[in-house]
Design a protein around this nucleic acid. Structure first.
Lengths: 105, 105
DNA sequence: AATGTATTTTAGTATTTGCTAAAATACTTA
DNA sequence: TAAGTATTTTAGCAAATACTAAAATACATT
């Protein structure tokens, strides 16, 4: 029987796979400064709304993002504090100069 | 023209994709305590040597792991400090209790 | 050179993923 | 209710991924 760490690795790998995509990674980065609605997200990404919607679905279906409807619009945000920490760490390590200044509100 | 952050996101997403696999994630975790040879790695993973070799190749080809031949054997290790930091952070966040004690050598 | 151990490569196949384009749904306002 | 804006879903296809099983390579020892 496989040791239990295999199950944990499977879960974590699955989570990583969901953000391991250029557009989805940009989406999560954009949302790390606060929630945004679908239109505000798809604008800067350079692809169709339909495509962005598909990625947003992948992220919400798997618990990375939360979804809130407000009238005509749908707002998305990061739903798990661990994900926020991960994104902050990744930006610090791999995108120096683009990281929001530390210790600022 | 796409803003430059897209290029950065692409590179980082690619790196993430390489570790976003159960076996490869376990491999990287195993190696965070020091380099090991292919046989020592494939043993606990519960799959064939051929398969592990394929995953090791993916990781080395993309700069995640380093490779060192010593006679009959081939030793692998994590080649980038940022990857070590990422793995440590992921274990701390997602595998509490299985994380090596902090502040220990 | 012959055998054994360690590792890698190849070929073939099944599954998953990501895109585009079009149609459908949801809600608001005139 | 009709028209407009915001978002989602569907269908279809092309490409990437991951596995298995088998063959090939590399080095060490006898």
């Amino acid at each position: 029987m496989k040791p239990p760490r295999h199950a944990e690795a499977g879960r974590l790998a699955k989570t990583l796979r969901h953000i391991a995509h250029p557009l989805r990674l940009l989406i999560v980065c954009m949302l790390s400064s606060g929630e945004k609605c679908a239109g505000d997200i798809s604008g800067p990404l350079g692809t169709t709304r339909g495509n962005v919607s598909q990625h947003l679905r992948i992220l919400t279906d798997n618990g990375v993002l939360s979804r809130r409807k407000d009238g005509n619009k749908v707002f998305y945000g990061i739903s798990d504090g661990r994900m926020s920490e991960m994104v902050a760490m990744m930006r610090r390590l791999y995108c120096p100069g683009r990281t929001p200044a530390a210790g600022r509100p």
